[in-house]
């Protein structure tokens, strides 16, 4: 009997909380097209967690990755929330490479 699972649950909760500003700021500065970058970064972080030997550290890295992947699926709705005035709207977004290509793809939403 040990509290490892509960500790991990609480840490996960705190990391997911960081997903809120990640999505809000990500969309504000780069537009929802940043979803491709956010999702790719997420999968790379999860992949990296496989090579972390310390259990609790591997979990933290994995959950950070999951937060990025989940965040990528929230960006499209966040863009609409900003357009509706529920969040500050930024018209001058920074265009990352391949933005024009990504615009043609359907953004994920769960």
């Amino acid at each position: 009997m040990n509290t490892f699972g509960i500790f991990i649950g609480i840490i996960t909760f705190l990391i997911i909380g960081l997903g809120f500003p990640l999505v809000i700021r990500g969309e504000r500065y780069f537009g929802y097209w940043v979803w491709v970058y956010m999702m790719s970064i997420g999968f790379l972080i999860i992949l990296a967690s496989l090579f972390v030997q310390t259990d609790w550290l591997s979990v933290i890295v994995g959950v950070i990755g999951a937060t990025f992947v989940w965040g990528s699926t929230e960006l499209k709705e966040q863009a609409i929330r900003a357009e509706l005035g529920w969040f500050p709207f930024n018209a001058n977004k920074i265009k990352l490479p391949f933005t024009e290509v990504i615009k043609k793809w359907k953004a994920p939403h769960l």
Binding site: I46, S49, V52, G62, V63
Partner: peptide
């Protein structure tokens, strides 16, 4: 290779998704 991070990532993603919809 330590799969504990992967287990955590999949669990976190699925529980957020299901919770979000439910």
């Amino acid at each position: 290779m330590n799969t504990l991070g992967l287990v955590a990532a999949i669990t976190a993603f699925l529980t957020i998704w299901i919770g979000h919809v439910a």
